[in-house]
């Protein structure tokens, strides 16, 4: 009924210590992970070929990045990296200092020390280590009992001394019994003392001054403020922030705007990049960052970025950079929603818009060429006798010719341009199947996935026909591990390196978006699958199509790396046997290149 | 807010209308105007005989021109026939009949356009046919052809592959696919 308060400061330090540990230990672990183990910003992949490609692209990127972009990137990277004096670090430092202070206080507190030493430790009493055997315990007891036996004591000892030694003897006997006698041992293990349950006191682990008449109104006030102001404030802030954003990371108002545009979209309208940019310009995220600007302003800024002009009335490049860098998540969100309403044309246009924004190139027929650095647009457009739209076509000419076509006179500049051109990954389809792990074919109502085998190649390299690659290079392991998780093969590929994108405000990595549509109605059937791991080592190979004329006996297919993409299907195979036709689209988000767009037959057989 | 003009007998909106409202008002006005000018008090969804005759005459003369290899005139007549069908028919006439008529005439118009080398217009009409649900190999063959001639090689291949999923053994589509592949190989160097 009557609770004791912690007058002697025996227990409240432990309480505060526990609270501190609850906060500090997870925080410390996560901070250590972030500082030392987080690999998401890595430029080392453990894959020397991939690092080689990375290095080449980084060098070229650095050469062509403008000063404005460089400054913006530095500021962005600085804020992303953890600062020494960030809030987290300060909390950690102060927290651990408090812990040290409390531990020191506990050690200096005699009352705590006394109650700790009051604990019954049979091993210490017998003078043996906790791992001693029964024989050691017996011999230790025998020695001590001889020393402390009341009958063996000298008659000269005073009453106090005698009492002390007798008490000692009792303790030693108890200790011996606690370790050997069954009943006493049970008592010791259950209650911590061989005599059974000791007195237990219950109290409140808080000093009494907190509840004394003087301090208690203050404590109540603190409680009131915490419960009625501080707690609701933080919970509301957290809740509205969580509620404001969809799973894909875009604002709910932006998402509902996109859904509205998608639902009211007329099939007679042709989807263009301009249309997508117009939809983007109404994003809520932009309004939050720049409340004073209108949708028309945002649209103009994005167009300025794509056309590499500066027509907007807002001349500060930071405004444009923030808007453009936000487009990444907005476009991914729109892509997801477009797949949700099954609109293939809009999904495709979203990906094309992505490329236009990343490369700052408008969606003209010449976009593959215009994404290259140093191109003299006027000379190129008026010059070509033979219509050149693709990098592949460009590389049918000798380097000097290419310089003339692109209007590049400087040899050093031409070399850089050709480096970029030959390091843009192109995909060549080798094989695509519907696979059901453990089955030789697709059976009715099974769950197949799509397995795509392709070659990553440079536009400069000679085309290798798919037949040149033996089945052994394309087949997959059939062991149990593979059947359990057929998608594990994707994890073995290294992450994509940073892209060549000197106009995009932040450093970014290429990704491949995979869309699947039904050929019967031409509509998409599932959300996009984004691939961010792919080996680009083939880009390092010297296989210039202007020099290699024929694929002779010296051609070794094993030297080439085959890329794999696995696309899970969102629905099972049809319940009846027959053929179903699917269109698979695999597009790069960052480059204008030869993407994959092909038809696959699902042969459903018993 | 909507206002009604007793002279023109038409509805219009006060202020800036939404797209949906604009379409709805347009449809109501079209229906009203057609109803007012209808002379037969017992009108039915059956197509008007005189309008049908007019359309048929125009269309037939267009076909005759085509047979005589006078394609510009053929195009003019067939286009006129389609215009008549769009303008002169009452909006309450049976949709199924109107659709079939339009699809039939469009197919002939497309063929004439292709002969005349007017590929972009042929493509638009082909897209229209596909939008009305006519997804058939014959339509996709012509669409592939038009896209190839317009230099849209990637799109041509995609349409050709779609055609082949409808009829995997179609010889013309197979030949077109080979042509797409060949042209794309050259396009990509």
């Amino acid at each position: 009924q009557s609770y004791e308060y912690d007058e002697g400061s025996e227990t409240w330090p432990f309480f505060v210590l526990t609270m501190l540990f609850v906060v500090l230990v997870p925080l410390s672990i996560s901070q250590i992970y972030r500082l030392f183990l987080d690999r998401s910003n890595a430029t080392e992949y453990g894959d020397p070929e991939q690092e080689k490609v990375q290095k080449i692209l980084e060098e070229v990127n650095d050469e062509f990045v403008t000063e404005d972009v460089r400054v913006f990137r530095q500021a962005y990277e600085k804020s992303a990296r953890s600062n020494i004096w960030s809030k987290r670090n300060i909390v950690l430092i102060v927290g651990w200092a408090l812990v040290a202070f409390l531990i020191q206080r506990i050690r200096e507190n005699d009352a705590i020390v006394a109650s700790a030493t009051g604990l019954f430790d049979p091993y210490a009493l017998l003078g043996v280590s906790p791992s001693a055997t029964d024989r050691d315990i017996k011999s230790a007891y025998r020695k001590l009992s001889v020393k402390f036996h009341p009958d063996k004591l000298s008659k000269d000892l005073g009453g106090e001394e005698r009492a002390r030694i007798e008490e000692m003897y009792v303790q030693i006997s108890k200790a011996y019994e606690a370790l050997t006698d069954e009943i006493t041992k049970a008592n010791y293990l259950t209650y911590g003392h061989p005599d059974g349950p000791q007195t237990v006191s219950h109290g409140i682990a808080l000093p009494s001054f907190l509840v004394d008449r003087v301090a208690s109104p203050v404590v109540i006030l603190i409680y009131a403020v915490m419960l009625s102001i501080v707690l609701p404030y933080f919970v509301t802030k957290w809740w509205s922030r969580t509620n404001s954003f969809t799973k894909k990371g875009i604002h709910v108002k932006t998402a509902s705007h996109f859904v509205d545009r998608l639902a009211n979209f007329k099939p007679s309208e042709i989807v263009t990049v301009d249309l997508i940019v117009n939809w983007l310009s109404n994003a809520e995220e932009f309004k939050i960052i720049f409340p004073n600007l209108t949708a028309a302003d945002f649209e103009e800024l994005i167009h300025d970025h794509i056309d590499r002009t500066n027509n907007s009335r807002l001349k500060d490049p930071k405004v444009r950079f923030r808007i453009v860098s936000k487009c990444h998540s907005l476009l991914h969100g729109l892509l997801d929603l477009a797949c949700g309403v099954r609109n293939t044309e809009i999904a495709n246009a979203t990906l094309e818009t992505f490329k236009c924004i990343v490369q700052a190139v408008p969606h003209t027929p010449y976009r593959q060429i215009l994404q290259l650095p140093n191109v003299n647009k006027e000379k190129f457009l008026e010059g070509s006798v033979d219509e050149i739209y693709t990098l592949g076509k460009l590389f049918t000419y000798e380097d000097k010719e290419i310089g003339k076509i692109l209007g590049i006179d400087d040899e050093h500049k031409l070399k850089k341009t050709l480096t970029v051109a030959s390091h843009i990954p192109h995909l060549k389809l080798i094989k695509a199947d519907f696979l059901v792990p453990g089955e030789p074919q697709v059976t009715p109502s099974s769950t197949p996935h799509i397995s795509v085998k392709f070659l990553v190649r440079s536009a400069k390299q000679k085309i290798i026909p798919p037949e040149k690659f033996p089945e052994s290079m394309l087949e997959e392991p059939q062991d149990f591990e593979f059947q359990k998780d057929p998608f594990s093969i994707l994890e073995s590929q290294p992450p994509m390196p940073y892209s060549y994108a000197p106009f995009f405000p932040t450093k970014r990595r290429n990704a491949l978006c995979c869309l699947v549509a039904l050929q019967k109605d031409g509509k998409l059937i599932q959300t996009p699958v984004v691939i961010d791991k792919l080996s680009l080592q083939n880009l390092n190979k010297d296989f210039d199509k202007r020099q290699v004329k024929d694929l002779d006996e010296n051609f070794k297919p094993e030297e080439w790396s085959i890329g794999t993409i696995k696309i899970p299907l969102g629905q099972p195979a049809p319940a009846e046997t027959g053929d179903a036709f699917f269109r698979v689209i695999i597009k790069s988000t960052d480059y204008f290149t030869s993407d994959l767009d092909f038809t696959m037959t699902m042969q459903v057989r018993e | 807010e909507i206002s009604y003009d007793t002279n023109s007998k038409k509805l219009s909106s006060v202020g800036e209308p939404t797209e949906g409202l604009e379409i709805a008002l347009g449809q109501v006005n079209t229906l009203t105007t057609a109803l007012i000018s209808e002379t037969n008090p017992n009108f039915t969804p059956q197509p008007h005989e005189d309008v049908s005759k007019l359309i048929k005459n125009l269309f037939d003369s267009g076909l005759k021109n085509a047979q005589q290899n006078k394609f510009p005139e053929a195009l003019k007549n067939v286009s006129l026939a389609i215009e008549m069908a769009q303008r002169k028919r009452a909006p309450w006439e049976a949709f199924a009949i109107q659709l079939k008529e339009l699809q039939f005439m469009l197919r002939h118009k497309i063929d004439i356009l292709l002969v005349l080398g007017r590929y972009l217009e042929a493509l638009q009409d082909l897209d229209m046919l596909m939008n009305t649900g006519l997804i058939q190999p014959e339509v996709l063959i012509r669409k592939t052809d038009a896209l190839l001639k317009l230099g849209q090689l990637d799109q041509a291949r995609i349409e050709c592959e779609r055609g082949l999923t409808l009829q995997p053994q179609n010889a013309k589509l197979k030949a077109l696919l080979m042509e797409c592949t060949r042209k794309l190989a050259d396009f990509n160097g």
Binding site: I270, T272, H363 | T30, R89, L99, L120, M128
Partner: peptide, 22 residues
């Protein structure tokens, strides 16, 4: 019928977009 007419009338605009794109 009206939807059909609207779709037919959008052909001109579509042509213009194609010309601009290609």
């Amino acid at each position: 019928n009206q939807a059909l007419t609207r779709r037919y009338n959008s052909i001109f605009k579509r042509k213009e977009v194609c010309i601009k794109e290609w």
